[in-house]
Design a protein around this nucleic acid. Sequence first.
DNA 1: ATAAATTGGATAATCATTATCCGGTTTAAC
DNA 2: GTTAAACCGGATAATGATTATCCAATTTAT
Lengths: 158, 158
Amino acid sequence: MKTGVEQSVYAVLLLNMLPDKAVLHSEVISGQIGASPTYFQKLLRKLVSADLITSVPGVKGGFRLKKDPEDIRVYDIYVAIEGQQSLYSPSGILSDVLELEYDDRCCVLGELMEEAEESWKAVLKRETIASLAEQVESDRFVNHVTDLKKWVEENMVV
Amino acid sequence: MKTGVEQSVYAVLLLNMLPDKAVLHSEVISGQIGASPTYFQKLLRKLVSADLITSVPGVKGGFRLKKDPEDIRVYDIYVAIEGQQSLYSPSGILSDVLELEYDDRCCVLGELMEEAEESWKAVLKRETIASLAEQVESDRFVNHVTDLKKWVEENMVV
DNA sequence: ATAAATTGGATAATCATTATCCGGTTTAAC
DNA sequence: GTTAAACCGGATAATGATTATCCAATTTAT
Ligand code: SF4
Ligand code: SF4
């Protein structure tokens, strides 16, 4: 799992704490998350392209959630950042000497890997930003979250 | 998914076709699989360290299965090659400003990722070399497999 | 007009994986 | 015994993907 996805999820969780119409600008977020500001912009850009968040250019600009938190699955963020290329790229092995036709490239292993990957994705599809946020609030982290919300209010714009 | 694991699985599948006491030497296998010979040796070495296969040094040496194919899970091969480090490395984000204690690093996302990974591993644990081999034989690939077995008999040693 | 923010492209740094090389050890065969 | 053919293991280079930086262009509140 690449750190870019992780940071993106946290970013979206932060944006989810924003009141309506407010935005956070990228350097504030990356500062809090501890990511490289310039690279983090690229991540945000991908989230924008995937229609998960909105960007407001210009002074007092920044980023805001575009969809409802119930409609943003962790999987959506994963795809936005990494693309939908599968973890496993079937290489059609053993075809050298044996001269297989193209649809003979089963390969049994490929099917297994695909199934494993689907199973992995299923977990990421199940959880949404809303459900994650709920967990964070309900858990033993109430203090933490109120601190976070205070921080958000201090740093948001508009 | 790294190609090293894939190649290793195919290697083990090939070794599984060997009659008792026979071995294949590494260059023959890597040749058939289409892997770089020198790197492939490293892969085989890891499989040896994990006690999945045995190596016979010296002239007429080579590699042979050590365990029964029923006792080699695809997951075992994965761990042998890549180690048991998880795909996701929890980075304890957002702790900067908020000064969390160490066990406050939940993090909700980490739990989710761990669950996803477990689900992924479960599929790999379910399948063994024996069950894979069975699939290959039963499928529409009978011709292919008989060719493979012929090739194995021609290239094995002892 | 100006300052502050995002956008997008080009490019460099970093890191894990893959690949190569070489001297050392073991074993079969002559 | 000597030799040839294989594995062993450590050092090291090449590759490729991810991460990071820089800069000119565009947008917008003041
Ligand atoms: S998985 Fe299918 S195509 Fe690949 S080697 Fe086995 S039988 Fe052949
Ligand atoms: S996941 Fe837990 S530790 Fe991480 S930011 Fe959320 S509440 Fe804090």
